[in-house]
Structures are given as C-alpha cells and as structure tokens.
Design a protein around this nucleic acid. Structure first.
Lengths: 259, 259
DNA sequence: GTGGGTTTTTGGTTCATACCAGATTTTTAA
DNA sequence: TTAAAAATCTGGTATGAACCAAAAACCCAC
C-alpha cells in the first residue's frame, strides 16, 4: 500500500481559491510526490487517487495525462500507472550501437526482429536513397527494449546494391557493427530529423502503449564517405524514454584547427 | 462556413462496429479532411463538430487532442481550433540566425525581448559553464514568432567574462551575428539536447497555448574554439512548430578526407 | 464613425454515471 | 496439483449536463 503525503485541508476541486484549477493542483501534488521519491513504482488506482484528492475521475485523468506528457509517469494497458524510469540518452549522430550506449548508461538492452522482407521503396525513401521506384530494398522492423521496457520501433531499409547479401545476416544484432565489420564502413554520415509525433497501432502496441500516444520520430539517412545514401531509418520512440543528445566532438575539431 | 465531407451512414459513436472507437473514427475523419485540404484555416466550433459526428463533446475533444498531438491542429485560447501551418525546419547545430533560416523557408520571423538581467547561475548552468555559483551572468528571455505565431521562448545566459559588455547590445537581434561581428566567434561548438516536455505558465502563455501543453525543450551549451563554454540556452518550442534537422556536412567532411 | 459596454459564441473545467475490455487474482473442478 | 473458469480490479471509452472565462461580435449612444 502506497501512502501519499497530502494536505487534508486543501480542497483540490475548489476553483475559487487562487484561480487555479483542480487538475493543476492534483498534477502538482502528484509530481511533488514523484520528484521527492515518496511515490515510486506503481501509483494507487485512479479511483483511489480520486478519493484522495477529492476530484472526479475525468479531472484526475487530465492531471495524469499531463504527468504522462511530462514524462513522469506512464501506463501499462489496463493495468495501472507507473513512475517513469530515467530517460535513455541517445545521440543519433554517433556511430555507436544500441547495445553499447545503453549498457554504458546502465540499462539492459534487448532487441526483437519483427520482420525481414524485400520491399519496393515509398516515394520518400526512393528520393532519399536516389533509387528507382522498382528497386528492391531489404527492409527490417525491430523492437528494442531497455530493462524489459519496449522503447523504440525501428523500420530500416537497406540498398541491396550497396550492401550485398545483407539479408543473410542476423539483423537482430547491431547494424552499425555489421557495417563496420562486414562492409568496412568505418566512416558514415547521417542526415537526421527529429520531430514530435503520435504513435498509432501497430507501433503503439509494440511499445505497450495506446493508439494515439505521444512519441518522437527520428528519421535518418545513412551515407558512405562519398555521400552515397544506402540506408533509410525511421525510429518511433516512446516520448518518455529518451533524450536526444549531441555533444560537440571537441577532440576531432581541435585537431583539425591546430596548425 | 466550412463544409466537411462526412459519410452520413457512419455512426461514429457505434462502438459495436469493428471494435473501433468513436474518438478514433472522428480523429481519422477530421485528419483526412485536413490532409486532403478540404479543411483549412479554422475548424467549425466543437459543438458543431459534435453534431456532425454525433458524439459527445468530451469524445470530440479526445479526438481533437490527438490531432493536436499529431501536429495537425492547434488551438487559440477560447477562440477556436486551427489547422497547423507547416513546421519550421531547425538545425540546432548550425551557426545560422533565426532570421536567416526562417526567411530561407519563407516565414516572416520576429523577436520580442521579454527581459534582460544579471543573474546568479543555477546548479545546471554553473556546472555547464564551469563558473562559480556567485558569478554574475547576463540573462535574457525572448519570444520568437514566425508569421505572427509565437513558436519558441528562449532563455539565454551569457558569461560576462567571455563576452564583455554584452548587456549593452540590442539583444532582440541575432546573437549568432553578434558573436560573429562583435566578438569574432566565427567558429563555435554546441552541446545539444532535445527532449519532449510540457509547457507551463508563464512560458505557455507567451506561446499562446495552455498550461500543460506539449512542447520540445532544446538545451544548448555554446563553446568557443578552445572548448570553453560561454553561453547556456534553454529553448521551449511549441511541439507542432518545428522539426529538428541536421544534415551531414558532406562538403566539409569530404574536403578533410581528400588526401 | 467610433468608442465602450453588452451579448453571444467559443473553448476550458468539472462533475457524476455507466459500461466496456483487458489484466490480475481468486476460486473451483478435474 | 494444476489447469480452467469465474470474479474482481484496473484503466479505457462514452454520455450529457452545467458552469466558467475569455474572445469575438454586436449594438447603441455619442
């Protein structure tokens, strides 16, 4: 049983006081308990929280929804609300494997290959990779988890011409290591885009979230040293699972700048 | 008066059919109208839409909320819902001014300086800039708009030691041009982080949105050629206003790689 | 015409209720 | 003992009603 600190004299639904809304008061009260670690793991049930804060369920759910947007809590379908684990720091520009940067940060990573097939590129991909609409590409879908929590669905498309027989490798492992070891692509370049998005089924289901949940979409075009694009990635992340980080590579730059 | 295509035989609130929910059907119907440009500018009022789709207002608002998360529509406080303009493409790594990259993309930019003061750094800033907690920094807040729509609130802190008399310049103009012209910082390096966040008052108010709205937080540490950090930025963006983009600088890299 | 007050319209907040669907736990029967 | 069935708990969906706050439209006196 979880005990929540709660000033019993505060009437959360009393909108007269200070022109502050009930949902905002409840939101702040729960946020405070989470930040001060008085609340960990799973939250009390919605109906319990309604009783605690003396608000209707829809008001409570408005507060919970905002805490979810803040990345403080998340839900498991029809099972309950949970305090979010810390975010994964992720540098889409860095040529590091998922395995590497997750373990560096103390997470237990895992990957499941959902599908592997030959596809014809959509307009966006054919334009990005400069290939004809009828060119066959190797396409894979994967779900990646940290500490048993699914955080990203990847949708990767590879140019067969550039990466011969790629479909014969174990594609549930690190692609960046495969590029390095098998195809000798030690230097690659990325075009990255990041934007806020909504996660819909079936992606939402793979991430154990709901249809319409908040996400971050990372798109990446991978090029070789000559600027030839050979890989097109779409990554759909749980919005609460990651923080994009890109650190200036001082050592490299300074080297170049020294006479 | 806006006319909406709508199959009158579809009962949106009939949950029996196909196990698809009313809010999802309404969401898809409105999304379709927006994508097909049958719906532009402002949407009909919520009560009208309720009548059109035969759902309760709370159900409709759930659909509108998801369309908002998708970046398809946005709201002006108590005035109505509007179809989102296209997103601004923004490369936080590029040393380009807001004026420059907005006009390049055909937007009309403007900036309002909200405040300018001397502050003592918080823990995060003092650690990032490697300055003592009692060092005075010049701090400014600005709101930047494109086509009259406020899209980002900036919170910038500068090291006075590194940028002497910075407080005497017009800080509603481009800082990157100021750095270039006045302080001769032609080459700078950035540490960037991007994450999903919630926008609360007063930031939400500056962006003409509501307390708890979705946002993207961009944090940036600016360093000189020697790696010395002298500026700390926090940017709070409307989540529907931007797309982070970073393009591989092929020309530069290829130059380096050529023998 | 026009400025200022009034009315109307709009979204924003909150409530109470009901029932559904899936996860979880408990009970029951083989 | 264990697997299947039932009960229970949880969040998810949906309704409709009421009232509030601010924006927008309107109107009228000057």
């Amino acid at each position: 049983m979880v005990t929540i600190t709660h000033d019993k004299t505060t009437k959360y639904s009393n909108k007269m006081s200070k022109n502050i809304y009930a949902y905002a008061l409840v939101r702040e009260a729960i946020a405070k308990n989470i930040i001060e670690k008085k609340l960990t793991g799973n939250l009390p049930s919605e109906r319990e929280l309604c009783a605690t804060y003396e608000v209707a369920r829809s008001t409570l759910r408005q507060a919970l929804g905002q805490l979810e947007n803040m990345g403080l809590i998340f839900r498991k379908n029809r099972s309950g609300w949970y305090v979010c684990p810390r975010k994964l720091k992720y540098d889409p520009m860095r040529h590091a494997s998922f395995l590497q940067y997750t373990t560096e940060q103390g997470f237990q990573p895992s990957t499941v290959l959902l599908s592997k097939k030959q596809i014809k590129p959509c307009k966006e991909i054919s334009e990005s990779l400069h290939v004809d609409k009828n060119t066959s590409l190797t396409s894979i879908k994967r779900v990646r988890s940290v500490d048993g929590r699914a955080v990203v669905v990847e949708d990767l498309s590879f140019s067969n011409a550039h990466l011969p027989e790629i479909e014969k490798h174990d594609l549930s492992l690190s692609i960046s290591i495969l590029l390095k070891n098998t195809y000798k692509h030690h230097k690659v370049l990325y075009d990255i885009s990041v934007e806020s998005c909504c996660l819909f089924n079936p992606i939402a289901q793979h991430l154990n979230t709901y249809d319409g949940a908040l996400g971050l979409k990372v798109t990446r075009i991978v090029r070789d040293q000559n600027g030839v694009a050979f890989e097109f990635d779409r990554e759909y992340w749980r919005h609460d699972a990651l923080m994009i980080e890109n650190n200036a590579k001082l050592d490299v730059f300074i080297q170049h700048l020294k006479p």
